[in-house]
């Protein structure tokens, strides 16, 4: 499936190194429009503008966690369908279930590879396309 690479992506992580790695990998996959946020709390006002087509977020951040950011997004009528990918070191079974319950579209555990990221993005956008097809 051909993915639209001309989309706005928000990368949220409290470590700048990680944001840079994710951005570089996304660039390699052909994406080019990114913004960054260093916490869920800084990300949320940005997300609310409605600019982003895809959110990639860490879980463990000081002010607002990624899972809380996800819940905020899902609870907002206008934003609730935004694809959301968690990239995190959290790997407890109960946490993955919690993320699934909150409505995550993909879950990648750190450290990860470019291939994993590619695979998850592919899968997420396939599902988005299916969802849109079903709705239309």
């Amino acid at each position: 499936m051909q993915i639209n690479r001309d989309i706005n992506i928000l990368v949220v992580d409290d470590f700048s190194t990680m944001r840079r790695i994710v951005k570089n990998l996304l660039k390699e996959l052909g994406f080019s429009k990114f913004d960054e946020a260093d916490d869920g709390a800084t990300a949320w006002p940005m997300v609310k503008t409605g600019k982003y087509d895809f959110i990639v977020s860490d879980w463990n951040m000081p002010q607002m966690t990624g899972i809380d950011l996800l819940r905020h997004v899902r609870a907002d009528e206008k934003l609730k369908d935004t694809p959301f990918l968690l990239i995190t070191a959290e790997a407890k079974r109960s946490q993955i279930l919690e993320a699934a319950q909150a409505g995550v579209d993909g879950y990648i555990v750190k450290p990860f590879t470019a291939a994993t990221l590619n695979e998850k993005i592919q899968k997420i956008f396939e599902r988005v396309a299916e969802r849109q097809k079903a709705q239309s």
Binding site: N60, I67, A91, K92, R93
Partner: peptide
């Protein structure tokens, strides 16, 4: 605690229940 995030599970204790 889990909801807040606990970082990588590096100790024997924290590995319990981790995939």
């Amino acid at each position: 605690q889990e909801s807040k995030g606990m970082g990588p599970n590096v100790t024997r204790d924290s590995k319990q229940g981790a995939l």
